[in-house]
Design a protein around this nucleic acid. Sequence first.
DNA 1: TTCATTAGTTGCACTATTACAACGGTACGC
DNA 2: GCGTACCGTTGTAATAGTGCAACTAATGAA
Lengths: 141, 141
Amino acid sequence: MNALPDEELATRVWRGMRGLVVDRHERRKEVCEALGMSFVRVKALRLVAAGPLTLRRLAEQLTTDPPYTTVVVADLERRGLVERAPHPGDRRAKIVSITPEGVRAAELAERILGTPPAALLALDPADLDALDRVITRLLAT
Amino acid sequence: MNALPDEELATRVWRGMRGLVVDRHERRKEVCEALGMSFVRVKALRLVAAGPLTLRRLAEQLTTDPPYTTVVVADLERRGLVERAPHPGDRRAKIVSITPEGVRAAELAERILGTPPAALLALDPADLDALDRVITRLLAT
DNA sequence: TTCATTAGTTGCACTATTACAACGGTACGC
DNA sequence: GCGTACCGTTGTAATAGTGCAACTAATGAA
């Protein structure tokens, strides 16, 4: 309950990061337009691109239910970006994996989403380095 | 075209920040559930809470078209969270402003969205300080 | 005044999202 | 083998988001 200075500072930092990423440099629409699909599909595509996974696991990562995940995957499959294969060890399950064309689409998405804003590029090298060090540490958690 | 080390570093930092904010600690669902409304409405509410603005301007900030903005504002008004008043200088325009109840709802949203993740709270004070310094600089741009 | 422009609104159409029920096929403990 | 639990799918339905056309009211320039 006691708002220690550190907690306040962390809050300020968090809101700042959120402001930069979400409020100022949201690229959802851009990437959706570029790939010609809704954002859930982009998200699913990127998850599959990161490595094959079962449909249920994909549903969890998308925080949607299995039925809708089926719809999304079916759509991506129709586009030739992913494919479904039976799970070797469990014939109930299916493995969703990326196709070569899917890799290209996912790379495009990454390129759009991953391009740093001008302010970051213009940052003092020392600051950028400090940022990199701390962010890396945070991600390691 | 030439990928300077700094540009690569900026890209890595940006992707890291995005990963933290968007991929790991997305709070959209949480805040939508808490306020009982869709995310566009939350976004609109927060924008109005930041200061009264014309409906057109709100539409721009939401990156939606005026018709849908009307729908969203009408819904927020029905909930008693915002109100529409004629623009003093331009009788075509309307000013959307927050109500006391809207302020409370917006504060709840801010509290949910603005709560830093555990990893950030657990960060070394020196790192947190460095982060704060650079983020602040970035936001000043 | 006239006319093009702008702000907001209403209505319509279409797609996307989300949840829920139910089903067939499979796995696994008993 | 049996029953239970699980995986993916289909179907249904409700809500949300998006774009477009058309309309009213008001502005402002020629």
